[in-house]
Design a protein around this nucleic acid. Structure first.
Length: 226
DNA sequence: GGTTGATCATGG
DNA sequence: CCATGATCAACC
C-alpha cells in the first residue's frame, strides 16, 4: 500500500504539477525525506542553515543546487520554506533578495527584483521549533501565493521608501525597524564584508551588504489566508 | 518573548 | 565579493 517516493528527476512542467509534488511530501519529516533520497540530516542547523530549503528543492525538482536566481524560471515560481510552530505560527522572517546599496538609475517597483521574486511564491511551512531536531521536523501543506493588490501596494510603499533612502545616501541610517511588510537587514558571511555605496554627500563609501526580508507578520497573513 | 543584527555553507 | 539557501543568538 505504501507508495515508494523518490525525488523527481526533472522539473515540473506546470504550476499544478509543482503544487502536486509539494502536496505529496506534506506530512513527511525531513528525516524521512532524507532517508528516501539517501541524504543524512544534520543534528542541528547551526552550520547547515540552508539545508531545509535545499532538501525541498531536491524533492520538487528544482535545479539541484547549481544555478540559482530562480527556482522554477519556466513557471515564474519562487520557492520558500518557512519554519512554523505547532500552531502554524511563523518563526522567522523570509529572505527575499539582495538589496542594492546603490540604486541603479531607472529602477522602479515594477522592474525591481523584489517584485519580480514575489510575483508568485510557493510557501512550504516546516513544522518544528528550534528545540525539535531537524530530522523530526514535518513538511506542511504548501501554499501558492500571488500578491493581492493590497499586498502589492504595501510592499511597493516599503520598497520605495527604502530605495529612496538608499539613493539619497541614507543607507547608514536604515535599520530593520523600517517597513511594514518589507525591511532591510545585514546579509553577509560576517562583519568584515563590505560593499560600495553612496554617502549623504554623494561620496563613495563602504557599507555592509544588505538584504530584503519579509516580516513574520506579513508571511503569517499569507499562510493564514487559505 | 519577539525582533534586530550577525552569522554559516556553498557556488559562481 | 555577490547571491543562493536561511537560522542563530544577543539584545530590548
Amino acid at each position: 500500500m505504501n507508495i515508494i517516493l523518490q525525488p523527481p528527476k526533472c522539473p515540473p512542467q506546470d504550476v499544478p504539477s509543482l503544487v502536486k509534488r509539494a502536496e505529496s511530501i506534506a506530512g513527511l519529516s525531513l528525516g524521512e525525506l532524507g532517508q528516501l533520497a539517501g541524504i543524512a540530516i544534520p543534528e542541528h542547523f547551526k552550520q547547515h542553515k540552508g539545508f531545509t530549503g535545499q532538501l525541498i528543492e531536491l524533492w520538487l525538482g528544482a535545479s539541484a543546487g547549481s544555478t540559482p536566481q530562480q527556482d522554477f524560471p519556466e513557471l515564474g515560481v519562487e520557492l520558500k520554506t518557512i519554519p512554523v510552530d505547532a500552531n502554524g505560527k511563523v518563526l522567522e522572517t523570509t529572505y527575499v533578495c539582495f538589496a542594492h546599496t546603490k540604486v541603479p538609475f531607472g529602477t522602479t517597483w515594477k522592474n525591481s527584483s523584489v517584485k519580480n521574486k514575489l510575483q508568485q511564491v510557493l510557501f512550504i511551512p516546516i513544522l518544528g521549533e528550534r528545540s525539535v531536531p531537524p530530522r523530526n521536523r514535518i513538511v506542511g501543506m504548501p501554499k501558492l501565493w500571488l500578491p493581492t493588490p493590497e499586498q502589492d501596494s504595501v510592499l511597493k510603499q516599503d520598497w520605495e521608501e527604502l530605495c529612496e533612502m538608499i539613493s539619497l545616501g541614507q543607507i547608514q541610517k536604515i535599520n530593520a525597524t523600517q517597513g511594514v511588510a518589507l525591511h532591510i537587514r545585514p546579509k553577509a558571511a560576517d562583519g568584515t564584508v563590505l560593499t560600495q555605496a553612496t554617502g549623504s554627500e554623494g561620496e563613495a563609501i563602504l557599507t555592509r551588504p544588505r538584504g530584503f526580508y519579509l516580516r513574520k507578520s506579513f508571511t503569517q497573513t499569507i499562510l493564514n489566508d487559505c
